[in-house]
């Protein structure tokens, strides 16, 4: 591990200034649960680590009629620790509950999980399913990017030098809606997703018909995948086994996994279908209750 400088700016503008000055050789630090390990193992060797936790906007967690504002440095435990958030954004709370153990959840942020841009990130499919938008600050001011367009490859994303993630904005929960995230892991805890599926469904008043749905897949492509076709296929259809089975088939068709030490391609494709079915079923249950 190489020595590095540490900066802790108090404003977005100051952070942008520091990051721009170092032009790619500075890295933002929120919880640090990925970054510190990556510096230690030599995957990153930044000159400067910019601690963004002192910037007030980065720690905002605000639930209003307009939706949820989630600061990029807010640790995971605050998702599931807030009953209103875990009810309205259940998939996100599901994700936050299974990212690492309690120590990790007390430090690690959903924003950091997104910026680390791992294909198997547990919270990104939930953000996509819930329609989250990333608010990015940079030398040219602020811009917004839908989360499904944020990651561009393993460990890669749309952030340009000098830019960093400020917050995530999630739309308000609609009536008769429910969401869920589930991953497959060989163990029961403390593991990384072999396949992850998030879904958010909106039913009609009877609870028997899909009005709309968003489904996202993790660990089955170079980035978390927005399974737009699955949502389209569900919209307007009755809630039944056949509809959900078709959705599972469609999700399998979208997945493009690789063979690695966590699972074979065949296994991942099969499990994508299984999990998609289970996750939609659970989302429907939640929408109905």
């Amino acid at each position: 591990m190489r020595d590095f400088e540490y900066e802790a700016p108090a404003s977005v503008a100051e952070a942008v200034k520091i990051l721009s000055r170092h032009n790619g050789s500075a890295r933002p630090l929120a919880g640090g649960t990925d970054l510190i390990d990556q510096i230690r193992t030599g995957r990153h060797a930044p000159q400067v680590v910019v601690d963004i936790k002192k910037i007030p906007e980065l720690s905002v967690l605000e639930l209003t009629a307009g939706g949820l504002r989630l600061g990029a440095a807010v640790p995971c435990y605050r998702m599931y620790g807030d009953p209103r958030i875990s009810a309205a954004y259940a998939a996100l709370a599901d994700s936050a509950r299974i990212i690492g153990g309690i120590q990790i959840q007390s430090r690690a942020s959903v924003g950091g999980n997104l910026c680390n841009s791992g294909p198997a990130a547990d919270s990104t499919p939930s953000l996509i399913a819930l329609g989250a938008v990333a608010v990015i600050a940079g030398p040219a001011g602020q811009r917004e990017v839908a989360v499904e367009n944020f990651c561009t490859g393993p460990g890669k994303n749309v952030l340009a030098p000098g830019e960093f993630l400020v917050e995530l904005k999630l739309p308000p929960r609609l009536p008769h809606s429910g969401s869920h995230y589930r991953r497959f892991i060989p163990r029961n805890e403390m593991d990384i997703a072999v396949v992850g599926v998030a879904a958010s469904v909106v039913l009609d008043g009877s609870g028997e018909k899909f009005v709309s749905a968003r489904v996202a897949l993790g660990a089955v492509g170079p980035t978390p995948l927005f399974a737009n076709e699955v949502g389209k296929l569900l919209a307007g259809q009755p809630v039944n086994e056949q509809t959900i089975a078709k959705a599972a088939d469609a999700a399998r068709a979208i997945a493009r996994p690789i063979d690695d030490m966590r699972g074979t391609k065949e296994f991942r494709l099969h499990v994508t279908g299984v999990l998609t079915r289970r996750v939609i079923e659970e989302s429907v249950q939640r929408a109905r209750s």
């Binding site: 805890e189 403390m190 990384i192 030490m261």
Partner: peptide, 11 residues
């Protein structure tokens, strides 16, 4: 120990 999976107490 992430990808070499010894059982945890949850297993």
């Amino acid at each position: 120990f992430l990808d070499y999976r010894i059982p945890t107490c949850y297993d």
